[in-house]
Each structure stands twice: as structure tokens, then as C-alpha cells.
Design a protein around this nucleic acid. Structure first.
Length: 577
DNA sequence: CCCCCCCC
């Protein structure tokens, strides 16, 4: 049975239709430059138009689930602009027919009676704003590529041009949240409740509010309404690119979309006090949210507080994993867990590598999966009334503890640690918390549970990834910028005695000394390549260089001085000579 | 433009 492409699909999308889920044919696929970004030309048999493909769909193209000639259904898409041209942004699609001859003789779509297709002069904002339906002008669309960038955990990358101008509204709470579903945009009617602060365009209309999950770099002006679910502390940095300060916060909207937002320097000064976290994060961190994008505010961004509470945006979003599942979760993963606190160990002082002393406390969490896990906490943990966790246990209460963004460690079995942006919730008012309580009180308390922690492997260390010397060599471990952590059992067969220390960079990076090896610069100074700075006096660090061997081979190993007199094998360098 | 995941 022949499949018909949806008549006038391109014109309809161009006109703003977002709901018809049309069938179109992919008549061309191009990978843009070195970016991981695909561009289709899609056709309805009469007209065709360029379509940018969301990077989460890249695999479909790479694995030939969509190819030139494929007939696809556009299930989620928007119309936008790219380089002054109207384009389609494909957010999701289904392949209907993988291989097909090109249908019809499609011509590039030209809108009739519209100025939209006419290329706008660069920076001519006035022109574009007069087009009230489509003030998402191309220049802004392109610039937004930079403000919205792939998160570091996604493999995508986008080329970031200079400067950009997103418009952004963020609220702690919102009244009258529009129930947003992309539909045909009606002619603009200014909603009375939104003012436009600091806009770069005169007489500019407020941007439309869209779901966080619909954000994409090809969008023009936009706004999101969201709750601040985490707020980091401002942090200073100093690196080869200069110094500055930065802070980040997390947003959650009424549709469950989350995104991390970052501001630097003057932008930080402008927004830091405005952003109020409804919850105080225990610690701070970088991105762990389920969003391919993160957002950077700039001087033209606006943030507006919406003072009225709105229940449609939850306080926090969790994706809990059962403790039994944690056993099979990769080390260093960031997960949400919830459990009953069944024990709280006394806190013990721990000396950190930077010389600071902190208090560590281990608690045990149990859930209905029949497993328990150790959770490492730093400092005191209190509920909203200021009652400490250990005091609650001491008075016979077994509180529910939910951990947002806990980190899985595999030291001694699997355990859970916290990272800077982890958040703890004692007896949170959420369904999982109530059902856990009920399970525990109705007999779960008396059932057996097995800990997934404390399964100490002899000789195990940080990651317990045991390698032979030949595996280290074959896999090229220790050769990249970031260290690889392995455990190796070997014999020291030779110790180098002529170099027991090296000239080290004394500059501080955050709270840690750089310590990179420095070289002579000019007559009397030293130069650090990492810090890109010169200084008169260098520091000295001990190191131990040795040959180690096991029954698979021989390699060089270097032990660096981490702090004080402690020597740790921090890095493996295989000998290439 | 940050990117630091604390201790065995």
C-alpha cells in the first residue's frame, strides 16, 4: 500500500502548526561541519525545507534507522530560524518507511505574502520585531546556540559563536502558569503579568513561555517558568583563560523538565540575589540533571520573580532507584535513592587532602528491595525543625531519607556518597516516602536485609579495577589528561634515584595547589603551562619513579606527593621506550 | 568562560 506524504506539511509547519504529526520524506542528510549535528531536507512531495535534527536523534541516523529517502513521521517539531532562513527543528520522529524513491519534485518552500522568508539584515532587530507572529528572529536564534549548550555528559557539541541574547524568566513560584503545549501561535497579546526588563530590543514583546524540555539552540526568543530547586555558592576560578567567578542553579518546571543554569562574573552579580532556592542544597556541584542542555545567562537575560506559590511545579523531582538496583549501577553514577534510616554511626573527623578537617558520618539506608546501603554524610544533617538525624534514631524514630543526586562509590562494595549538589530530605512529603514508611511500620522493619556495602575486597582501592601491567599498556591507561584509576599488583624492580623531586607550580587552583611541573622562563623565573603564568619562586614536590613488573610485563610508575609526607600512586605512565 | 564529587 503506497504511503502518501502529508499534503502541504511544509507550509503548515511554517505557518506554525505543531500538532499534525505529518509524514514527510528525508531527501537529503548532511552532517554539519565537525559538529555532531545533522541537517535534513524534508519534503512533502511539493515543497521541501531544511530541518535541524535534535542531537538525541543522532544515533538513529548513525545506525541507518533514518536515511536519505526515508519516510518519517514528525512527532515533535517546531518551526524556527537558522541563518535567516525558516527551518524545521525535529525534536522527535518515527521512521515509517526506511527506503523509498524520492517522491514528486519538491521545491524549496517560499511563504507567500510574508516577509518572513526575506533575509533580514544582520542586527536589524526593529524589522523583525514588527513581525509580531515571528519575532524569533534569526539573529537571536543563532546566538542562542551559545546560551544553550550541550551538557558535559552528552556527547554532542555545538559551535559557539560570540555573544547571544536569550530572554529568560525564572520564578520561585508562578501563578497562572499557562498550560503550555506548542500550538499555532496566535497574534501576540501582551499578558499583563509579565514585564520586560533589560530587553535589548525596543518595544519588544515578552517571549513565549515554553517547557524546559522544548528548549533547543535553534529557538528564537523564549522564556521558561520554573522553580529553583538548587542554588550553588559563587565560586572563584583561575585558569589559563583568566579568572572570574561563577555560580549555577537548577530549575524545574511544571512539566518536569530540569535544566542547569550558570552565570559568570557581572551576570552573577546581577542575578545571584534574585535567585532564591526554595531548598538549601547541602552541597554544590556540577550538572547531574537529565537534560542534554545547560543554560548560560548573559547580560541581556532577564529573571523575574513570580511571588505567588504555584502547586503545579513540584518542590523537587526524584527518579529513585531501589537499593537492590544500586548494586549494578556503575561507580560514579549520580542517582536518587530513598530509604529508611536504620542506623547512624557516630561522626568521625577526617583530614581532607587539602588539610581541612571535616566530620564524616555513615548511615545505613534500607528499602523494600530487601537491601540496605551505606550512605556517607558530611557534617550534620537536620530536619526542618533542626532535629539531628542521630537524635531522631536515638528517640526510636526511623526517618525516611531521600537523597537527590547521590554518588555511587564502589569502595568496599557499593555505597552512596554525596556530591556538592546532593540534597537530603528527611521524611519528604512524597508518595514514595509514605509507602516506604507504611512498608516499614507494617512489618518491613522485621524482615531480613542484606547490605550491598562493606564487601571489602582485599587489596581493593578507589575503584577496585584490577589490571595487569600488560593491560595497562595495551589499554593505554594513564595517557590522557585525566587519570585512570586502577589497582595493580606488581613488584618494584627498580627505583630511580636521580630525581626524587620536581619543580612544581605554587599557584592555587581553587583550594588546591596546581603542582604541575614548571620549567625555567627567562633568567630567573618559572613558567607554568597549565596556569599560563610566570613567577619567581617555584615549589618542590617529591616523587618516586620506579619500574614495576608482574608476570605480564614491565612498566614505569610514578608516585606523586599529594600532601604532607603522604605518597600516593596517583598516575601510571607506561614506558614507551 | 565552570567542571571542585571530601575519607578509607
Amino acid at each position: 500500500m503506497p504511503v502518501h506524504l502529508t499534503p502541504n506539511a511544509i507550509a503548515a509547519i511554517s505557518a506554525g502548526d505543531l500538532n499534525s504529526k505529518p509524514l514527510v520524506q528525508v531527501i537529503d542528510i548532511k552532517l554539519l561541519g565537525t559538529q555532531e549535528r545533522y541537517r535534513f531536507i524534508v519534503s512533502d512531495a511539493v515543497s521541501c525545507q531544511h530541518a535541524m535534527v535534535a542531537t538525541q536523534l543522532n544515533d538513529r541516523i548513525k545506525t541507518s534507522q533514518v536515511k536519505k529517502g526515508s519516510i518519517i513521521q514528525l512527532t515533535e517539531y517546531i518551526s524556527s530560524y537558522y541563518q535567516n532562513r525558516k527551518i524545521i527543528v525535529v525534536l522527535n520522529m518515527e521512521t515509517i518507511i526506511l527506503d523509498s524513491e524520492i517522491i514528486g519534485d519538491p521545491k524549496p518552500y517560499v511563504e507567500s505574502g510574508s516577509t518572513a522568508q526575506k533575509a533580514l539584515p544582520n542586527n536589524n532587530f526593529e524589522n523583525s520585531v514588527r513581525d509580531s507572529n515571528n519575532y524569533m528572529i534569526s539573529q537571536e536564534s543563532v546566538r542562542n546556540v551559545q546560551s544553550l549548550r550541550p551538557t558535559s555528559h552528552s556527547g554532542t557539541s555545538l559551535n559557539c559563536g560570540p555573544n547571544l541574547r536569550p530572554t529568560f524568566h525564572s520564578e520561585n513560584s508562578v501563578h497562572n502558569v499557562p498550560n503550555f503545549r506548542p500550538t499555532v501561535q496566535p497574534p501576540y497579546q501582551p499578558p499583563p503579568q509579565y514585564k520586560n526588563h533589560g530587553s535589548i530590543v525596543k518595544n519588544e514583546a515578552p517571549a513565549r513561555i515554553i517547557p524546559i524540555n522544548a528548549l533547543n539552540p535553534y529557538q528564537g526568543r523564549w522564556a521558561i517558568k520554573a522553580r529553583v530547586t538548587a542554588k550553588g555558592d559563587p565560586r572563584r576560578y583561575n585558569n589559563a583563560r583568566g579568572d572570574g567567578k561563577v555560580f549555577s542553579f537548577d530549575l524545574l518546571d511544571s512539566e518536569g523538565g530540569e535544566i542547569r543554569v550558570t552565570c559568570f562574573n557581572a551576570v552573577l552579580d546581577r542575578f545571584y540575589d534574585t535567585i532564591e532556592g526554595s531548598l538549601k542544597p547541602a552541597q554544590k556541584n556540577f550538572n547531574h540533571l537529565k537534560n542534554d542542555w545547560e543554560l548560560t545567562l548573559d547580560a541581556s537575560s532577564t529573571v523575574e520573580l513570580c511571588p505567588d506559590e504555584d502547586g503545579s511545579i513540584p518542590e523537587q523531582k526524584f527518579s529513585f532507584r531501589h537499593i537492590s538496583e544500586i548494586e549494578n549501577v556503575d561507580s560514579n553514577s549520580i542517582v536518587d535513592i530513598i530509604g529508611i534510616v536504620i542506623s547512624v554511626n557516630p561522626s568521625v573527623p577526617i583530614m581532607r587532602k587539602n588539610g581541612m578537617e571535616t566530620q564524616r558520618r555513615i548511615v545505613n539506608l534500607r528499602d523494600w528491595s530487601g537491601k540496605s546501603v551505606e550512605l556517607t554524610l558530611w557534617g550534620d544533617v537536620c530536619n526542618r525543625e533542626g532535629q539531628k538525624l542521630e537524635d531522631m534514631l536515638a528517640s526510636g524514630l526511623f526517618p525516611v531519607l531521600a537523597v537527590k543526586a547521590g554518588k555511587i562509590n564502589d569502595f568496599s562494595g557499593k555505597s552512596v556518597g554525596t556530591i556538592h549538589s546532593s540534597q537530603l530530605f528527611i521524611n519528604p512529603d512524597i508518595p514514595d516516602s509514605h509507602s516506604l514508611r507504611e512498608w516499614f511500620d507494617r512489618g518491613g522493619k522485621d524482615t531480613a536485609s542484606v547490605s550491598i556495602s562493606k564487601d571489602i575486597v582485599p587489596g581493593g582501592s578507589k575503584n577496585e579495577i584490577r589490571k595487569t601491567v600488560s593491560q595497562i599498556k595495551d589499554e593505554g591507561l594513564g595517557r590522557s589528561d585525566k587519570p585512570d584509576w586502577v589497582t595493580v599488583k606488581a613488584t618494584i624492580s627498580f627505583i630511580k634515584t636521580d630525581s626524587f623531586c620536581y619543580t612544581a607550580c605554587p599557584l592555587m587552583i581553587g583550594d588546591r595547589q596546581c603542582n604541575k611541573k614548571v620549567s625555567r622562563s627567562g633568567n630567573r623565573g618559572w613558567q607554568c603551562d597549565r596556569c599560563d603564568q610566570e613567577f619567581e619562586e617555584c615549589d618542590y614536590r617529591y616523587l618516586l619513579q620506579a619500574q614495576i613488573q608482574d608476570n605480564t610485563g614491565l612498566t614505569w610508575a610514578t608516585a606523586f606527593q599529594e600532601s604532607g609526607e603522604e605518597i600516593l600512586v596517583a598516575q601510571q605512565r607506561t614506558c614507551t621506550c
